[in-house]
C-alpha cells in the first residue's frame, strides 16, 4: 500500500466513524441554525438601516450566502489539537510510533475524514436557513464547484494548523488558549464574520497575505463572486500555505520526537 493510500484509508475510516454518529451531528447542527438565524436578522436590520442595496459590494443575499459558506467551513473545522495535546500529556504517543505513518499526518488524515460528514450536514443546514431567510439568488455552478474544491483545501490547511497547535503541547502546559486565538483570527482577519472588503485598507492588505483568509474567506468569496481571475490566485495561495505548513509540521515533529520521553509500564 502506497503512503498516500494509507492516509486515504485512515480518512475513509474516520468519515465512516463520524457518519455512524450522524444523529449527534444533526443535533449539533442546531448551532448552525442558530448562527445563521442571527446573521439573517442582523444583516436584514443593517441593510434596512443603511437604506442601500449594497454594502462594500455585497447585496443582502450575497452577504448571507457568503456567511453560510464561511460558517460551513468553520463549523466543520478540525479539533485534532485536542487529541494530540491529550496524547502528549498522557504519553499515549508511544502506541502511535510503531505505525507505518508519521503521527502528525495520520492526525491530518483523521481530521479530514471526520470533517467530511460534518461539512455535508453543515452545508445543507446553513444553505437551508439562508434560502428560507433571503431566498436563493447568489452563487453559480462554477462558484459551487470552486467552493467545494477550495473548501477541501481550506480544511486541509486548517487541519495542518490544528496539528501544529496540538504539537505545541510538547512545550506548553495548555494549548487550548492558542486554539482560541487561532479561531478568533479566522473570525477577524479570516473574514468569517465579515468579508475582507469591509475592513479598512491597511487591514485588508495585511489579511490578504495571512493564511487565515484562505480557510474561510477564499472559498466563500469564490462561491458568491466566481471568476477565474480571482479564484486561481486564491487556490495558488492555499497550495503555497499547505506546502509551507507541511514542511513546518514535519520539522516540528522531528524536534518534538527528541523531547519525547517514554516510560515503561
Amino acid at each position: 500500500m502506497s503512503l498516500l493510500s494509507r492516509y486515504w484509508f485512515v480518512s475513509r475510516i474516520s468519515a465512516r466513524q463520524q457518519w455512524a454518529y450522524r444523529s449527534e451531528v444533526l443535533v449539533r447542527s442546531v448551532s448552525t441554525v442558530l448562527f445563521m438565524g442571527i446573521f439573517v436578522a442582523l444583516w436584514r436590520t443593517a441593510f434596512s438601516v443603511s437604506q442601500s442595496t449594497e454594502l462594500s459590494g455585497y447585496s443582502l443575499v450575497d452577504m448571507l450566502w457568503y456567511l453560510a459558506m464561511t460558517e460551513t467551513v468553520a463549523l466543520s473545522s478540525s479539533r485534532a489539537f485536542q487529541e494530540i495535546s491529550d496524547a502528549v500529556k498522557a504519553g499515549d504517543l508511544a502506541y502511535t510510533l510503531t505505525r507505518p505513518m508519521a503521527y502528525p499526518f495520520l492526525q491530518v488524515a483523521n481530521s479530514l475524514g471526520s470533517s467530511a460528514p460534518r461539512f455535508l450536514i453543515n452545508l445543507v443546514t446553513a444553505s437551508a436557513v439562508v434560502a428560507v431567510g433571503v431566498g436563493l439568488g447568489a452563487g453559480s455552478l462554477g462558484g459551487a464547484l470552486a467552493f467545494l474544491v477550495m473548501a477541501w483545501l481550506a480544511l486541509l490547511l486548517d487541519a495542518l494548523i490544528a496539528v501544529l497547535i496540538g504539537m505545541l503541547a510538547f512545550w506548553l502546559e495548555e494549548v487550548l488558549p492558542i486554539y482560541w486565538i487561532y479561531q478568533k483570527l479566522l473570525f477577524t482577519v479570516g473574514g468569517l464574520f465579515l468579508p475582507l472588503e469591509f475592513f479598512p485598507g491597511w487591514l485588508q492588505r495585511l489579511s490578504q497575505w495571512l493564511p487565515f483568509r484562505f480557510i474561510t474567506n477564499a472559498p466563500a468569496r469564490a462561491f458568491v463572486a466566481f471568476s477565474f481571475a480571482e479564484v486561481l490566485p486564491m487556490v495558488a495561495g492555499q497550495l503555497v500555505y499547505i506546502g509551507v505548513l507541511l514542511a513546518v509540521v514535519s520539522l516540528v515533529w522531528k524536534i518534538a520526537r527528541r523531547r519525547l520521553v517514554l516510560h515503561g509500564g
Binding site: 443593517a46 438601516v49 443603511s50 454594502l55 462594500s56 506548553l172 502546559e173 495548555e174 487550548l176 488558549p177 492558542i178 482560541w180 486565538i181 479561531q183 478568533k184 483570527l185 473570525f187 477577524t188 464574520f193 465579515l194 469591509f198 475592513f199 479598512p200
Partner: peptide, 25 residues
Amino acid sequence: MIQIVGMMLNNVMLLFFWTVLFNRL
C-alpha cells in the same frame, strides 16, 4: 495565566466585528 490571558484576547477579538460594522453604520 495562559488560559486567563488567552480568554481575554479571545474576547477582545470578538468585539472586532462590531467595531468594523459600526464604522459603516
